[in-house]
Structures are given as structure tokens and as C-alpha cells.
Simulated scan of single mutants.
Amino acid sequence: MRNDIGLTHVALAAKNIDSSIDFYRRYANMHIMHERIDKEIDKRVVWLSDKTRPFVLVLVQSQNPTPILGPFAHLGVGCKDKAEVDQLCMQAKQEGILAKDATDSGYPVGYWAFIHDPDGHVLEVSYGQEIGLTVQNTEI
């Protein structure tokens, strides 16, 4: 058995996991990697990933989740271009879940917006942040 090292996941409570799975599929291109009923807590648990890196979003069923990611705390997802950010903002606006419209903050922050998931957690969609490249090119 291999052990994971480093940051591997973020776990969030979700009242309706199916709604959250649908949200993260549509807004972050994430899909189920693992699913189970946790016998210790008798709750449904799913792991979602976009498979761009070894990292998952863990959703745990909860009757009354407290949105811990907001108003500024958030998950961040990089998009392929500004048009994708704009399209996701338009979709979120139509669904009434757009928290902050797209803003161009220049380098290194880029073009970004905030969207609420079904439980009120905040997802940032962005273009131009170059976080992966910065990490890859930084020596410790």
C-alpha cells in the first residue's frame, strides 16, 4: 500500500450530496472517484476530482451543513480561458447562485468570480492565476 503525502483533500458537509455532485460536475468538471456509506457515522461520503492532480473534494452527508467556505474562503478552480469564466458566471446568474461577478484583478490574481454551491460554500472560477506553474517553478 502506498501512502499519500501532502495536501490530498478538502472535506465539506453537504445536505443533498446529489445536488452538490451535480454542481461540482457542472462548475468544476469534477466526477465521483469514490463513494460509500461510512458505517461509523452512517452517512454517505463521496470523493470528487477533476483528475488534473491527485486531489479530491470530499462531501459528507449532513442534515444542517454550516457553509464554512465563504464569504471569502473558497475552493479555486482554473478555467481554460476568460470565456469559460464568463459562461459559468452567466449560468450561475441564471440559477441565482452567482456570489461575485467576474473581475479582472491582473497578474497574479487573474480573472475570477465567486459562485455558491448548494450549501452556501464558495467556489472561485478563474483564468490566469498560474498557481500550478508558480508551484512547479519554485524551489524550496
Rank of each mutant, 00 (worst) to 15 (best):
P54D: 14
P54M: 11
P54A: 14
F55W: 11
L57G: 09
L57S: 07
L59Y: 11
V60I: 14
Q61P: 03
Q61E: 15
S62H: 13
Q63C: 08
T66R: 15
I68T: 13
G70K: 08
G70R: 12
P71Y: 13
A73V: 11
H74G: 03
G76N: 04
C79P: 02
K80I: 14
K80G: 02
K80H: 14
K82H: 06
A83D: 11
V85W: 10
D86M: 01
D86V: 00
Q87N: 08
L88K: 14
L88S: 09
L88V: 03
L88G: 06
C89R: 11
C89K: 05
M90Q: 13
M90F: 08
M90T: 08
K93L: 10
Q94W: 00
G96P: 08
I97C: 13
I97G: 00
L98P: 08
A102T: 00
A102D: 03
A102K: 06
T103W: 11
D104R: 04
S105E: 15
G106S: 07
Y107N: 11
P108G: 04
V109L: 15
G110R: 06
G110L: 10
Y111T: 03
W112V: 01
W112Y: 11
W112A: 04
W112L: 01
F114G: 03
F114L: 10
H116L: 05
H116P: 00
H116Q: 09
P118L: 05
D119Y: 10
D119W: 08
G120T: 09
H121D: 10
V122A: 01
V122R: 01
L123Q: 08
E124T: 01
Y127H: 14
G128W: 05
G128P: 02
Q129G: 12
